[in-house]
Design a protein around this nucleic acid. Structure first.
Length: 362
DNA sequence: GTATGCTTTCGGC
DNA sequence: TTACGGCCGAAAGCATAC
C-alpha cells in the first residue's frame, strides 16, 4: 500500500489557517534576489485549476492569479517536517513494515493485516484515512496493490483524497492501456527508444520477448522492464537506513564566474552539509559541486574518494578543485546558483561490507 | 562487445 | 515584457574491466 499526502505543503498551510481554504494558495521558495524572485514549490488545487504548477516562476504565478484573491506563502519546512513526522508515525502503526519515501509519501506492507484479502482493503484504507484526518486534519491518496510498483502507480491514479485498489487479477487490466512512459523506471529517452520498437503502451512492452529486451537494453534493465510491464515486482517494503545523498544549494547574490567570490559560499554550504552529516553520524565517500548557470542549465562535478571522509577541510578543498574544473569546462556562462552534494553515505565507524569478500566462489 | 559501476543531467514535488 | 528553488532519487551518458 502506498500513501501520498495531497498537495502537502499547501494543505498544511490551509490546515493552519482555515481562511485559505477557498482561495488559491501558492507555497513559494523565495531566492532573495529580488522581492518576487523564486519558484513555486506547490499549490492547492484551486491554484492548479488556473494553471499554476510546481517549479513555475513566482512572478508568473502572480500574473496568472492576479485579481483571484490568491495567497502566496514562503515555505515553512520546519512545520512540514513536524507534521510529516506525526503522519508518518500514524501510517507506521497501520503496517507490519514501513518505508518512508519522502516527506509526504510512504509504503506500508499490509499483507498480514489483510490476510492477503483485497476485499478488506477498502475498509482498511478508510480507517487509515479517517485516522490521519481526525488526528492531523489532512487528506491523502492511497494505492493498494500486490506489490510496491502497483501500489505506487495506483496511488497517483486518483487524487486528491483518492483510493485505488488493484487486485492481483486486475493488474494487467490496470497497466495495459497506460503509455509505456508511465511505467516506473521509464523516462523520456527510454520511451522514445520503445516507440521506435513499436512499443507505445505497457501492454505492448509486456508482449515483447524478454530475450529481445535484454538484447536491446542489457540484462539488468531488460529483465526489469519485462517484469514491471507484467506487473511483477519483488522489492520488499523496508526501512530506509538514511538518505543516499545530501545536498545544499543556494542562489548567489549576483551571477558570477569569479572563484574567489564563490569560495566563501562554497565553504558555508559545506559547513551546513557537514552539520547534517554529523547529526546523522554519517560520513561520505563522494563529494560534488553543483552549478546552475545564468541560462538555468545545470552542471556538476563530483569525485569518489578512496575512503569515506568526514573531514570538513578535505571536503572544502575538493570542492574548490571541482569548481575550478567546472569553470574551465564551461567557459561561456556566469553561475547563478551554487551547491554542494555529498553521497555514498555510510555510518561512521562502520565499514561498508564489500560483497566480494563474502561471495561463495564456485 | 558487453556488463557494470561511476558521473552527470533530468524530473517530480 | 520577463519572469526561475531546493532537494531528492531516477534516468541517461560515459568509462572501465573483463
Amino acid at each position: 500500500m502506498h500513501i501520498d499526502l495531497d498537495y502537502f505543503f499547501a494543505q498544511v498551510e490551509e490546515r493552519e489557517n482555515s481562511s485559505l481554504k477557498d482561495k488559491p494558495v501558492v507555497v513559494c521558495v523565495y531566492s532573495g534576489r529580488t522581492e518576487h524572485s523564486g519558484a513555486v514549490s506547490t499549490a492547492n488545487y484551486i491554484a492548479r485549476k488556473f494553471g499554476v504548477k510546481s517549479g513555475m516562476p513566482i512572478m508568473l504565478a502572480e500574473k496568472i492569479l492576479s485579481g483571484k484573491d490568491a495567497v502566496f506563502l514562503a515555505v515553512n519546512h520546519e512545520l512540514y517536517d513536524k507534521v510529516s513526522d506525526k503522519v508518518m508515525g500514524i501510517i507506521n502503526e497501520f503496517g507490519d513494515k514501513f518505508e518512508q519515501v519522502s516527506v509526504d509519501e510512504a509504503f506500508i506492507d499490509v499483507t498480514k493485516r489483510l490476510a492477503g484479502d483485497f476485499e478488506k482493503a477498502e475498509e482498511f484504507v478508510a480507517e487509515v484515512k479517517k485516522t490521519i484526518k481526525s488526528k492531523e486534519r489532512l487528506t491523502c491518496s492511497v494505492g493498494v496493490g500486490p506489490n510496491k510498483l502497483i501500489a505506487k502507480m495506483a496511488s497517483s491514479f486518483k487524487k486528491p483524497d483518492g483510493l485505488t485498489v488493484v487486485k492481483p487479477p486486475d493488474v494487467k487490466k490496470f497497466l495495459n492501456p497506460m503509455p509505456v512512459g508511465k511505467l516506473y523506471g521509464i523516462g523520456e529517452k527510454t520511451e522514445e527508444k520503445m516507440g521506435k520498437l513499436g512499443v507505445k503502451t505497457i501492454e505492448d512492452l509486456a508482449r515483447i520477448e524478454v530475450s529481445k529486451l535484454i538484447e536491446i537494453f542489457g540484462k539488468k534493465l531488460g529483465t526489469y522492464f519485462h517484469l514491471a510491464a507484467n506487473g511483477i515486482d519483488n522489492e520488499p517494503v523496508q526501512d530506509r537506513e538514511s538518505a543516499e545523498s545530501l545536498s545544499r544549494i543556494a542562489t548567489l547574490k549576483e551571477d558570477t564566474r569569479n572563484l574567489e567570490s564563490m569560495i566563501p559560499v562554497l565553504n558555508r554550504l559545506s559547513e551546513e552539509v557537514k552539520v547534517r552529516l554529523d547529526m546523522q553520524n554519517l560520513n561520505c565517500a563522494s563529494v560534488g559541486v553543483i552549478t546552475v548557470m545564468e541560462d538555468l542549465t545545470l552542471h556538476s562535478k563530483s569525485r569518489t574518494l578512496d575512503s569515506p571522509t568526514e573531514d570538513i577541510e578535505t571536503i572544502k578543498s575538493i570542492l574548490i578543485e571541482l569548481l575550478e574544473m567546472l569553470l574551465k569546462d564551461k567557459t561561456d556562462l556566469n553561475i547563478r546558483r551554487l551547491g554542494v552534494k555529498v553521497s555514498k553515505l555510510s555510518e561512521k565507524g562502520k565499514q561498508k561490507p564489500i560483497n566480494e569478500f563474502f561471495e561463495v566462489k564456485s
